[in-house]
């Protein structure tokens, strides 16, 4: 018998008056999976997370976490869940140590990972929260979410404000959670982050879930830009003829090749010339959404 998914959303909808938060969201997240919820600001990511945490009531539809209704059985769910807010708000007047003690107190001091997380994230627990930088506040929120070793993590933009070094530490910790069979629901507007840590990705835009893909499918389908400098002339028409190539532009001293999917044929084609430099640039989130949107339209057509 198949395992029940840890997170299930069925036609989950939230409207704030006439303003749409999220509409008809259908998705499942399995045990041991890291699921990325990718979308720009205002797409409905935080609304979804607030409904999963039982902070706001769905206008329609339902959400279940560990088989329990997120609105009616919210307290029981939170015994299994650790969460961070997108816009981290902490008790400003407390010291970090006091804040962690306070939160620990709701689980009878079950913060078994607290010391390890504090050390790995290099968190100064003696400081007052109001004296902390944006990044350090985020670290506090991460420790609060993870210290009791929850079965499920629900993280809203968890790396906002973290420096690159701390982002790596966080990704490593997340990887260890996954290895121990934990489920992670992570919202982000950073494509590279989602690509790096997630197994599957839900792409949300303007309150609608546009697609759910595995990371492999995401890589195959996403648009990338390859900037190549050559020492001599290049026959652009041969490049344009390749099915993976969407566009070729000459920009100053290099060519910008916009491509989707497998790069093997393109590499073999440009290898026929003397290559001086080659770089890939990540597409913007908007480019990425456009690529998916158009791709979806093409498929439908």
């Amino acid at each position: 018998m198949a395992e029940t998914p840890n997170i299930i959303c069925r036609e989950l909808t939230k409207f704030y008056g006439a303003t749409r938060g999220i509409e008809n969201l259908d998705l499942t997240v399995g045990r041991g999976e890291i699921f990325g919820f990718l979308g720009p600001n205002g797409a409905g990511k935080t609304t979804t997370i607030r409904m999963l945490m039982g902070l706001i009531r769905p206008t329609a539809g339902s959400a279940m976490v560990v088989g329990l209704d997120t609105w009616k059985q919210s307290v029981e769910i939170k015994r299994h869940v650790g969460a961070t807010q997108g816009d981290v708000r902490l008790y400003e007047h407390m010291r970090v140590q006091e804040l962690l003690d306070y939160i620990d107190g709701f689980r009878s001091g079950a913060g078994s990972l607290r010391a390890e997380l504090v050390e790995r994230l290099d968190l100064a627990v003696g400081k007052k929260v109001k004296a902390l930088s944006r990044g350090n506040r985020q670290k506090v929120a991460i420790v609060v979410a993870m210290m009791h070793d929850p079965e499920i993590l629900i993280l809203d933009e968890p790396t906002l404000g973290l420096d690159p070094l701390m982002q790596q530490v966080f990704y490593a910790i997340l990887g260890e959670f996954k290895q121990r069979g934990k489920t992670v629901f992570l919202s982000s507007h950073i494509l590279s982050e989602v690509e790096r840590v997630c197994d599957r990705v839900g792409i949300v835009k303007e309150g609608n879930l546009m697609d759910v893909r595995s990371i492999e499918e995401l890589r195959q389908n996403k648009i990338r830009h390859m900037d190549v400098s050559f020492s001599g002339e290049v026959d652009i028409s041969r490049l344009k003829a390749l099915p993976q190539v969407l566009d070729v532009k000459r920009l100053d001293s290099y060519l910008r090749i916009t491509l989707r999917g497998d790069i093997d044929a393109i590499i073999k084609e440009i290898a026929r010339y003397q290559v001086v430099d080659l770089t890939f640039t990540q597409p913007s989130l908007e480019d990425f959404f456009m690529s998916f949107y158009h791709h979806g339209t093409d498929d439908d057509g």
Binding site: M53, S74, V75, R79, V81, A83, Q85, D87, R89, I103
Partner: peptide
Amino acid sequence: EKGTMEMLLAQPVA
């Protein structure tokens, strides 16, 4: 208003 209620209610407390 401060947003700390979200953190509090993210814990297993009714």
